[in-house]
Simulated assay, not measured.
Amino acid sequence: MQRLAGLGRAGLFPPEGSVPVAQLLGCQLARFLHTGLAVLAAKELLVKLRKKTGYSFVNCKKALEKFDGNLKEAEGWLHDQAQKEGWSKVSKLEGRKTKEGLIGLLKEGNSAVMVEVNCETDFVARNAKFQHLVQQVAVGTMQHYQETVEQLSTYAKCFLETRELSQLRLGPDGSLLSDQLALTIGKLGENMIMKRAAWVSVPENFFIGSYVHGAPPTGNPLLSNMMFGKYGALVICSPPEPYQKSNFVELGWRLGQHVVGMAPLSVGSPEDEPRGDSETKMLAQPFLLDPAITLGQYIQPSGVSVLDFVRFECGEVTETAEAE
């Protein structure tokens, strides 16, 4: 007993009237679990913010610490910082040549959009962040015309250049495409230009053929509704009655393929002879996949009339660029 009392005086057992050992250990365990759960929760927040924004772990951690784990405020702060950094890089990189890039093609119902966005290197053109920017330009263009154009009795074809594209707003938050451009420049560190966009819309009894060539590797599910490449074409067609859209999907693809490969300057007419200046007229050109016949002869059995087309080639010099 004396020995046990000595142990108590030595502090190995709690003195009489103090907190029991089991309770003391329970408190320590609770504190340990609480700390562990807090660390786990903080880590989950960090991963969530990183995945949602795409910014570095270092910056995401800094943002969460700055706002005591408030995810919404941290995300807003990261966006503001990235925007400032992006615009800073825009001014530094301005003037650097942008010969690479992508053509992006988006179809939605009876409308289609084709855009060209340029960057400095093909390496960046293959980056998912750059491709997402191309998608944003296409979606912004589509939304702009859906809100401004009424129901059509015939087809419509409109074009937008760099300055007009930069002022388009995107999505529910109404952010400018120019801001999205700055963010992407800030992330990838290359000069970029939203060069041009074409929007085409047709009534129910028409169809739009489309084709993109030289597409980069796919695999990003967020971009599954887009087609990307170095060349693209939209072909406006009037089919015979009665009209089943599914019957003309392949024909539309072949027509777009011909426009990309043969680069006509005008549609022409089926009566044009395949010689002289008619070589630039689409219907008089030798059909890309069977040069023994003209394109006009190829489509004649289908009863389809080609009314118009748009062709984009990434990096080509346009009339607007020449004027500038």
Rank of each mutant, 00 (worst) to 15 (best):
A5E: 14
R9H: 14
R9T: 14
A10W: 01
G11C: 13
F13I: 15
F13G: 12
C27T: 10
A30F: 15
F32W: 14
F32P: 00
F32G: 08
A38F: 10
K43M: 11
L45T: 14
L46G: 13
V47P: 09
K48P: 03
R50E: 09
K51L: 13
T53E: 14
G54R: 09
S56V: 00
K62Q: 11
A63M: 07
F67S: 12
E73D: 14
A74H: 12
L78D: 14
H79T: 13
H79Q: 13
G86Y: 02
W87G: 07
V90Y: 05
S91D: 15
K97V: 06
T98E: 00
L102G: 10
I103T: 04
N110E: 03
N110D: 08
A112C: 06
A112E: 04
M114E: 04
V115I: 10
E120A: 04
A125L: 02
R126V: 03
A128S: 11
F130M: 02
F130V: 01
H132I: 00
H132Q: 04
L133F: 05
L133W: 03
V134I: 03
Q135G: 01
V137R: 00
M142C: 07
T148M: 06
T148A: 03
L152A: 08
Y155N: 03
Y155F: 15
K157Q: 07
F159Q: 02
E161R: 00
E161T: 00
T162D: 00
T162C: 00
R163I: 02
L165S: 01
S175A: 07
Q180E: 12
I185D: 07
I185T: 07
G186P: 06
G186M: 04
K187I: 01
L188A: 10
R196Y: 01
A197Y: 08
W199C: 01
W199G: 01
S201N: 05
E204I: 09
N205F: 08
F207Q: 03
I208A: 01
V212K: 06
G214T: 09
A215N: 11
A215P: 13
P216C: 03
T218W: 01
L223S: 05
N225G: 01
M226N: 11
F228P: 12
G229Q: 04
L234Q: 06
C237G: 05
S238K: 15
P239S: 06
P242I: 06
Q244V: 09
E250W: 01
W253V: 06
P264R: 09
P270Q: 06
P270T: 10
R275I: 09
R275E: 14
S278N: 15
S278F: 06
E279A: 09
T280K: 08
T280D: 05
K281A: 08
L283E: 08
F287M: 11
L289M: 13
D290I: 06
A292M: 11
L295E: 07
G296E: 10
Q297K: 13
I299L: 04
P301Y: 06
P301W: 05
S302K: 07
S305D: 12
S305H: 11
L307H: 05
R311Q: 10
F312G: 00
G315N: 07
V317W: 00
T318I: 09
T318H: 04
T320V: 00
A323Y: 00
